[in-house]
Design a protein around this nucleic acid. Structure first.
Lengths: 343, 343
DNA sequence: CTGTTAGCGCATTCAC
DNA sequence: GTGAATGCGCTAACAG
């Protein structure tokens, strides 16, 4: 392996100084076209490649941003990350991925190692009970911190989320429009704002429609199939029995559907179901599931854009920007009584 | 914001020299326990945090590894990345994610920027026609290069893949065991080794069973639903009609199933279907799809382990390690004629 | 326009 | 054991 060539090597070869080489390479105006050409040519010839590390140390800018998500192997976060990467890479930034595994302690650790690594920004989707201290350490260093999807109430931190209230409202309203009057709700962990909001949207839609709100019809579940099944078992024993289920998660909705069918009830005739997240499988089912799309890809791009803005903002005034994306209701056969969709 | 504290700051505070501080912080044996304690305490007190960038520049080790995948928003690659991250993070490495979008040119660019960023290793799942030059540039720098899932034939490069031949063979054999004799194959892009291997495995299983191999029953498709539908339309017009379809992709298998049902044929009675990849949706379908699991998580962990080995290998002997994971056949109702599975 | 000097923060010689 | 000096590779300030 040939040792890597530095600007000194090419300076020596051209009998000029390293500073000049640097200038040529960085399109510094204070340099003659001829020497610039010379340097560029020689650089190419010698297979010169800039050591970003040295540049980073010197400039204090690493061109790395850290992204912390609970997990990367989920459709939602995968898509968000794709959006982030797609937006940041053309700007010369690299994306460092970290997983918190929903654990606040791990999250804190990852934040610290990212900080050590001198990242230029941190984008995070928080865990259900993130500690603020590590997050504050980011701010203390004047490094842009952006929340996406799951935020925490912190001054000076921008966030990109969807309007979970609105999404839930739309879903519930849709069920009401389809003639449902006894709408149950599979809710999530209330320590996460997103689930509180979805619950509120659900409740508000019911109240706005003049329907009675029934505590018994709200069941907390984890976002998985088995919890959806269990909760639905409970719901189906109720009297009167709900005629619709709005689930705050697609996976729980899937469980609901399976349980409903196991009990030989018809969807959507007997019970309509709407999920949340637009997981890929909801579209592929034989009975496609109505759901709320969170546009994760756009969320990622938007989070990246907000970071870039913040990053380029020279002034030391902390700006706090809240971007709220509009969720989209996707109506499929699991909730469509009034007409049949053509696939 | 207080300026970040360096080893000089803490040296000054203790009236010793930076070198000593560095030694204390790095558990260098040549230092007295007392001063070490003193330094550690002061460091904590002053909120000292090591600047990995400076360390990286000095040591030549960035503790960053680059991972290049066609896309990050797929279950398979998401899981692989999770495995990689899970294995590498405890060792102090950060994972930088790049997407090639299946484009060899983009792939080359990402490789170069990763190289500039001084990554300590590159793990890549190649595109269908990756150029070797950028990949060689990695090797030329003596940086470990590991292929996973999609490899390229290159000397001195380790790889972690599954045995695609075996997977396809198992799937086809299973269909034969179930009594199918006219087995069609939805194949993928032959410029990717994985699809060539799957085809070979399919063909071999048929030959080994003494069944006739029929060219017409092999159709090239992209890994998506619509291509699966189109190909299946063609297959169903054939005479004799195939009684099974082994698809090299779950998405194409899904399309096949939808088309078969659209034509009022029964699965698996009339036609059995087996996919490939164990995408999450295959399990959730009302008619769960038999498929081949590629254990992406293990693949990621293994790729990371191979990197670590290679990285710690002091000798300049290039080692080439090939890890081949065993694919697992997952039998579900789309191909199970002989008995009914309890879910 | 170009050369000189200095420093980003750290770890590693070499002395003592 | 500890201090002094040096360099990783690059860029910026200041001269000229």
């Amino acid at each position: 392996m040939s040792k890597k060539t530095t600007i000194y090597d090419i300076a020596k070869a051209l009998d000029i100084t390293a500073a000049t080489v640097s200038r040529a390479l960085n399109n510094n105006p204070k340099i003659s076209d001829t020497t610039r050409e010379l340097v560029l040519q020689k650089a190419a010839e010698m297979n010169y490649e800039q050591n970003k590390l040295a540049q980073a140390l010197k400039s204090g800018k690493s061109y790395n941003v850290g992204v912390i998500v609970p997990r990367v192997d989920s459709n939602f976060f995968g898509s968000v990350i794709r959006g982030i990467e797609e937006e940041l890479n053309p700007q010369g930034y690299h994306v460092i991925i970290c997983q918190s595994y929903e654990d606040p302690k791990t999250e804190g650790k990852k934040i610290d190692t990212l900080l050590n690594a001198q990242v230029d920004g941190v984008l995070v989707s928080t865990t259900s009970n993130s500690k603020k201290e590590p997050l504050k350490r980011i701010l203390a260093k004047n490094i842009p911190l952006i929340f996406f999807d799951r935020r925490k109430d912190m001054q000076g931190v921008s966030s990109v989320v969807i309007n979970d209230f609105e999404g839930a409202y739309k879903a519930t309203k849709h069920l009401i429009d389809e003639g449902c009057t006894k709408i149950a709700h599979l809710s999530g962990n209330f320590s996460l704002e997103i689930f509180r909001e979805r619950f509120s949207g659900y409740k508000q839609a019911i109240i706005d429609a003049g329907l009675p709100f029934n505590e018994d019809w709200v069941i907390k579940t984890k976002s998985n199939r088995t919890d959806g099944i269990e909760a639905t078992k409970t719901l189906l024993q109720l009297n009167p029995r709900p005629d619709a289920i709005f689930s705050a998660s697609d996976f729980a909705a899937l469980g609901a559907i399976q349980e409903i069918r196991a009990q030989k009830l018809n969807i959507p005739q007997d019970i309509s179901v709407v999920g949340f997240s637009n997981e890929p499988f909801t579209k592929f089912m034989e009975l496609p599931i109505s759901t709320i799309d969170q546009s994760p890809f756009e969320m990622g791009k938007m989070a990246a854009k907000v970071f870039l803005e913040q990053s380029n903002n020279e002034s030391h005034v902390k700006m706090e920007k809240k971007v709220v994306l509009d969720p989209q209701l996707i109506i499929r056969n699991s909730s469509l009584k009034t007409q049949v969709l053509t696939p």
